[in-house]
Amino acid sequence: MITYVVKYYDKLLGALGEHLVLVGLTLVFSLILAAALTVLCVYVKRVEAALVGVCSMIYSIPSIALFAMLIPLSGLGKTTAVIVLTLYNQYLLLRNFLTGLHEVDRGITEAAAGMGMTTGQTLLRVQLPLAREAILSGIRLAAVSTVGIATIAASINAGGLGSILFDGLRTMNMNKILWGSILSAGLALLLDRALIAAGRRASR
């Protein structure tokens, strides 16, 4: 196992790098989209149930199927992978964001409105800071799940740690299977820890 790393470390590092880029891009786009959808829900309350419903439907599609469905639209490769992963995250993010906002005590939001805060001011100054925990846990969930599902993106030529895993499976190479698993699991754990630490720092 160790000799494998010594021999192929550049290949492993390359796959890890690709994976990180995939996850990083996905998280950036996911957060932008989820934030926009959340704000939409806050201003137009009627769309909330429908939007969460659609996101949960997408989330329930097996990832391989969703990758395959998008190939005619955006082809093989990273673009399709990032689109699919971003769509998947919407359910995790939106649901956590909205739950966090709704859990802010009604007395507090009503006091904010009654004092003359606009909807936007209430959201920014009162609801968001108080929903921080739920928002952060949504981001962590999305990050960890993206690391996992991104391995499957190798099946549509998006590269990353998944390509090592799939190679290993095809050739029954235990070294590749193990290192692919260890690196993706390690990445997920590390990302989770890093987000927790970042959250703590921000709350100080």
Binding site: D105, R106, G107, I108, E110, A111, A112, A113, G114, M115, G116, M117, T118, R125, V126, P129, L130
Partner: peptide, 20 residues
């Protein structure tokens, strides 16, 4: 409406202080 509310003091039973 927001100007109106800023001109009126409002106190509720749940107090509604912002805990953060």
């Amino acid at each position: 409406v927001t100007n109106l509310r800023r001109r009126i003091g409002y106190v509720i039973q749940q107090i509604g202080l912002f805990p953060h």
